[in-house]
Amino acid sequence: MNLDRLRTLYAVARHGSVSGAAEGLHVTTSAVSQQLSKLERETGQQLLAKNGRGVRLTDAGRLLSDHAARILSQVELAQSDLEAQRGHAVGELLLGAFPTAVRGLFPAALERMRAEHPELRARLQEMEPDESVPAVVRGDIDLAVVLDWYNKPLPVPDGLVKAALLDDLVDVAMPADHPFADRCAVEPEDFVDDEWISWPEGGFCYDWLMVTLRGKGIEPHIRHTAREHQTQLALIATGLGIGVIPRLGRGPVPEGVRMVPVSPPSMRRHVYAIWRADADRRPSIRAAVEVLRSVGEKIVD
C-alpha cells in the first residue's frame, strides 16, 4: 500500500471530512478523493461511505486508519533517527504560532534559522493554541509555539514534549488621563470601577482574564472586545476603557496610552514550544527550539 494514500486516509479520520483532510494536507479535495479511490482499489475494500452531505469511514476504513496511524508514527521515528544520524537540521519544518509570537518572535528567529541552518526549510502558519496543539497531535505541523498564563495552564496532551522559551510580562494599558497613569506600578484591584477592553469571549485569554479578576473579587465590566492587541490599544487611546496587554509583539504604543506594570511583576504569560515525542530526536526540532529560545532571551532582556 502506498504511504501517501495511507496518510490521506488517516487525515480523513483525523479531520472527519474530505475537505478538512485536504486543508490539513495542503492539497485539493479532488486530490484527496483520487488518493482514496486508488487506496480502495489497492485494498479491494470500501473505505468510505456517504453520510448525509459528507462521508464516514467504514469498518474497514477505521481498521486501516488505525494501522495507518501506527505506520506513520513508525515512519516519523525512522525519519527522526535518520536525521539524527546525519547530525544536522535538514528538510522541511512546519511551524505554528499564536499571533503575537509570529510578530514578536519569529521574524528574527526565521532569519537566524535560515542563516545557521541553510538546509532547513521552515514554513510558518499563524494559529491560536487551540488550533496548533491539535495540529501537532495530528501531525499537520511539526512544532507549535503556544502560551499559557501563570495561573491558568494550557492542557498539553500525552505524547507531546514541551520546552520553555520565555516569560512574557504584561502591563495595564490605560488612557493617558487615567488617575493611575503616572504610577510606577498598579494592582488589578485598583480598577474595580473601570470598563475593560478584552479579548473575545470564549477564548483562552478571555477566560484567563475573568478567572484572574474574579479571583481578586472583581467582576469586570467588559465594554469592548478585540482579538488584536493593536486594536485594543487603539480603543484604549480614545478613552474607551483599560486593558491588560502583554509585551511580546506589542509594537508601538499609541499616543494617549500609558503602560503601567503590575506589582508585583507576577502577571505573565509562559511561552513554550511543543512537538511530538516521536520526533524528539530530530535535529531540526532541536535547532528550531534553540533559536527560538535564544531570540526569546534577548526579548526578555
Rank of each mutant, 00 (worst) to 15 (best):
A49D: 13
R41H: 05
G44F: 01
S33I: 10
K38F: 00
L57V: 10
A60D: 09
K50I: 05
R56W: 05
Q46W: 00
G61D: 04
G24I: 06
G20F: 11
T28K: 09
A22K: 04
L39M: 01
A31K: 11
E40C: 04
H26K: 14
D59G: 15
E23S: 09
V27G: 11
S30A: 15
Q34S: 07
H26E: 12
Q34E: 13
S33F: 06
S33V: 14
L57P: 08
R56I: 11
G52Y: 12
A49F: 10
Q45W: 03
S37M: 07
R53D: 12
G44L: 06
E23W: 01
L25H: 02
G44Y: 00
G20Q: 03
Q35R: 15
V32L: 12
H26A: 12
S30C: 04
Q34A: 13
E42A: 14
G24Q: 09
D59A: 13
H26R: 12
A22Y: 06
Q34Y: 05
L47P: 00
A22R: 07
L25E: 09
G24K: 08
R62E: 12
V55M: 00
Q46R: 13
G52D: 14
Q45H: 11
A21D: 13
N51A: 15
V32W: 06
S30P: 03
S65F: 07
Q46H: 08
T43Y: 04
A31Y: 07
G20R: 02
A49K: 13
T29E: 09
G52I: 13
R62H: 03
A31W: 11
G54A: 14
L36I: 10
K50C: 03
S33N: 15
Q35V: 10
T29W: 07
H26V: 05
S65D: 05
A21M: 08
H26D: 11
L39K: 07
G52F: 10
K38N: 07
E23F: 08
A49N: 07
L64H: 00
S65L: 07
T29P: 09
E40P: 02
